[in-house]
């Protein structure tokens, strides 16, 4: 969001016309790419620092994590671990190795499972991405339906609509999940209690994540929706004899969803992290169980691997939203 604000496109001087013309649009795109690159680099650095910050001797920790014991180790035991993870190198060398590894798609080696982190994550990430995608679609459908139905009506309906937004936005996923589980899986038996990977098993976990997200996006959309309802173009449309539903769907909605589009990058990150709790509740496969086990056993390469991937997803999604704006917004056209 701040990328959009910080882009100085409006007051760029039209000086360089004679030389190689750099349009403000191109410059703003380059600025955004550089900004995203810096954030990615910062995220990788934070992940590296987290691994170094683990208290105690790392080789000892790795051996203890692997064996599930807590004991002092002899130098003979530690030597192969130090060699394998390059722990005898200076920290700067380790840092550069880590960054180089990330560029090649190497997230490090799990302390506990003794195999590449990427392998562990890639086995499970599909289920989480499927859940995330279904959640985002469901959240948009619920949000658009609810806001179009209740925004800008009489004062009572308006208050009710935005009240529902506030309440649902604050619902913790574990609680909503338990309620849905009790009503629709145990009570009515419409859905399986244990998620699984089938189409039927994804409905309740996705709804659990989508309802609060819809409430959250609804709050942003509702404000813009009610503002757009008073806009001149709506009056024009009314004068042309267009019906209320048509105006809401064809004119107002288009303006009103922009803040929610801006939230998409954030929403993807928030949904993936909410998925950790929901996957645990519905015993669904996914990176949630990988992450919970890794946090519990201090398997830091796995934890930082997941965290870096989610941060990268957030940055890329935000970048795409920003670039889409740059390309769509007619005010950005270089005359």
């Amino acid at each position: 969001m701040t990328h959009t604000l910080s882009a100085k496109h409006t007051d760029a001087p039209p000086a360089t016309r004679r030389r190689l013309t750099v349009s403000p649009r191109a410059r703003s795109i380059v600025e955004k790419l550089v900004g995203a690159g810096i954030v990615l680099w910062g995220a990788a650095t934070a992940a590296f620092l987290a691994q170094v910050a683990l208290p105690g001797d790392r080789a000892t920790t790795i051996l203890n994590v692997r064996s599930g014991q807590t004991q002092l180790r002899t130098p003979e035991e530690l030597a192969p671990i130090n060699a394998e993870y390059g722990l005898q190198d200076p920290v700067l060398v380790q840092y550069l190795d880590y960054l180089g590894g990330l560029l090649r798609g190497d997230l490090g080696i799990s302390y506990q499972q003794h195999r590449p982190v990427w392998g562990i994550i890639s086995e499970q990430v599909g289920a989480t991405l499927a859940l995330t995608a279904v959640t985002l679609v469901l959240a948009w459908v619920i949000m658009v339906f609810w806001v179009t139905l209740t925004a800008g009506r009489g004062p009572r309906i308006r208050a009710f609509g935005s009240g529902v937004d506030t309440v649902t936005a604050g619902l913790p996923p574990y609680w909503l999940g338990i309620l849905l589980l009790l009503v629709f899986a145990l009570g009515l038996g419409w859905f399986p209690v244990i998620g699984g990977t089938g189409v039927n098993g994804i409905v309740l976990p996705a709804l659990t994540l989508a309802i609060p997200l819809a409430g959250f996006m609804g709050q942003a959309t509702r404000t813009e929706f009610e503002r757009s309802l008073d806009a001149p173009f709506v009056l024009t449309a009314r004068m042309r004899g267009m019906g209320d539903v048509g105006i809401r769907l064809r004119h107002v909605l288009r303006h009103a969803v922009l803040p929610a589009v801006t939230l998409s990058g954030w929403a993807i990150g928030a949904t993936i992290s909410g998925a950790v709790i929901v996957e645990s509740l519905f015993t669904r496969p996914g990176i949630g169980s990988v992450l919970i086990t890794a946090v519990d056993s201090q398997d830091l390469p796995v934890v930082t691997g997941v965290v870096v991937l989610v941060a990268a997803t957030y940055v890329v999604a935000n970048l795409l939203v920003d670039l889409a704006y740059t390309l769509i917004d007619p005010r950005m056209k270089n005359s």
């Binding site: 910062g42 650095t45 992290s273 950790v276 709790i277 890794a294 946090v295 201090q298 934890v303 965290v307």
Partner: peptide
């Protein structure tokens, strides 16, 4: 720094700290 930290969702950043 704020932008970088904001790229980590709250729960994941908290879990990272718990694992350390």
């Amino acid at each position: 720094v704020i932008e970088v930290l904001f790229a980590f969702p709250t729960l994941l950043l908290a879990l990272l700290l718990v694992s350390i």
